[in-house]
């Protein structure tokens, strides 16, 4: 009996493919499922990332032979005021692309959640989310027209007697960055609102009811229930919008191209100019790597915070 059982077990063993020994079948199947996506990820994300790091160590015109320069490109990025300025501009954009949309999104979502349920809520969600569907380049062009000297916004100002304030908002040194920021708010507010609203529907209604029975007003409800329960969603919102701010390219490129002067020059635009107009692929790559590092430095703490708070 024991012999027969051992033989059967042996036969089962023999049927196993030798190199799979010790690896659980489930694991293999799992990897096989992931493999196609992983290949694409490697080819279109990891490889370009690694190549960018590699290029950043060379002086290269994008075509001819390259010269090894070590970390000299990074030194240039940190030394050159013009390049550093783009990084500062990127952080100024965070205010418009991230803090305002998330803050305003919270308030809007909470209002919709409390007041506008049903059809009205659906309509307002759609309207707010619409900018996400419109290509950013198209949005940039339309906003460029709206914000021009003869545009709708200045016409509106003139109509209410504020004609003196009228200016080419995107061509003025003081207003160009905030004007680009407003386009960013318009694009990202809907995204934040819808995400936060979805989060709110997951909060137990009983919490709100008991708060109301206790006589809590909207603002108390907002501070004590809504915000604490939405920490994870807020974390996602901040992450996505901060990345949108620091890595901004399309809106800025179409609306101002980085001008006037360097008032709205952001790293994305400077990388493009360096790589494709100046043919300094090495320096452009170094700036790109610095940008990636900065984004990670900002994002990782936010991620940790929002995770820790979720029990």
């Amino acid at each position: 009996m024991t012999q027969a059982r051992a033989a059967a077990a042996g036969r089962r063993e023999a049927r196993r493919i030798p190199w799979l020994q010790g690896i659980r079948r489930q694991t293999v199947v799992g990897w096989l499922f992931v493999l196609p996506a992983l290949l694409f990820y490697a080819a279109f994300v990891l490889q370009p990332l690694a190549l960018t790091v590699q290029y950043s160590l060379y002086r290269w015109d994008g075509f001819g032979p390259a010269t090894w320069v070590g970390l000299a490109n990074y030194a240039s990025v940190l030394r050159e005021p013009k390049l550093l300025e783009t990084l500062f501009n990127a952080f100024r954009l965070v205010l418009f692309f991230s803090l305002i949309p998330v803050g305003l999104g919270l308030v809007t979502a909470s209002v919709i959640h409390r007041v506008a349920t049903g059809r009205l809520g659906a309509i307002s969600r759609t309207v707010l989310f619409l900018p996400q569907v419109i290509p950013l380049v198209a949005a940039g062009i339309i906003w460029g027209r709206l914000l021009s000297l003869s545009g709708l916004i200045n016409q509106g100002l003139a109509a209410i007697g504020l004609g003196d304030v009228a200016r080419a908002w995107l061509g003025d040194f003081d207003t160009a960055l905030p004007a680009v920021g407003i386009i960013g708010i318009w694009v990202l507010l809907g995204f934040c609102t819808v995400l936060l609203l979805t989060g709110m529907t997951k909060i137990d209604e009983a919490l709100f009811e008991s708060a109301r029975i206790d006589g809590a007003g909207w603002s108390q409800e907002f501070r004590a229930i809504t915000v604490p329960n939405l920490r994870h969603e807020i974390g996602v919102c901040i992450t996505v919008t901060v990345i949108a701010a620091l890595a901004a390219f399309d809106i800025v490129y179409v609306a101002t191209g980085g001008g006037p002067g360097n008032a709205t020059a952001v790293p994305g635009i400077q990388i493009y100019i360096l790589a494709f107009l100046e043919r300094q692929v090495g320096l452009a790559s170094a700036l790109a790597v610095v940008l990636v590092v900065l984004v990670l430095l900002v994002i990782l703490p936010i991620q940790r915070l929002s995770r820790e708070d979720v029990r």
Binding site: A42, A50, L51, D61, P65, A66
Partner: peptide, 20 residues
């Protein structure tokens, strides 16, 4: 090691001999 196809020659070296 990261499983990438990146050739580790200096960039540009691949195409430049043929060109120049």
């Amino acid at each position: 090691a990261a499983g990438l196809v990146a050739a580790c020659a200096p960039p540009g070296a691949v195409s430049s001999p043929a060109g120049s």
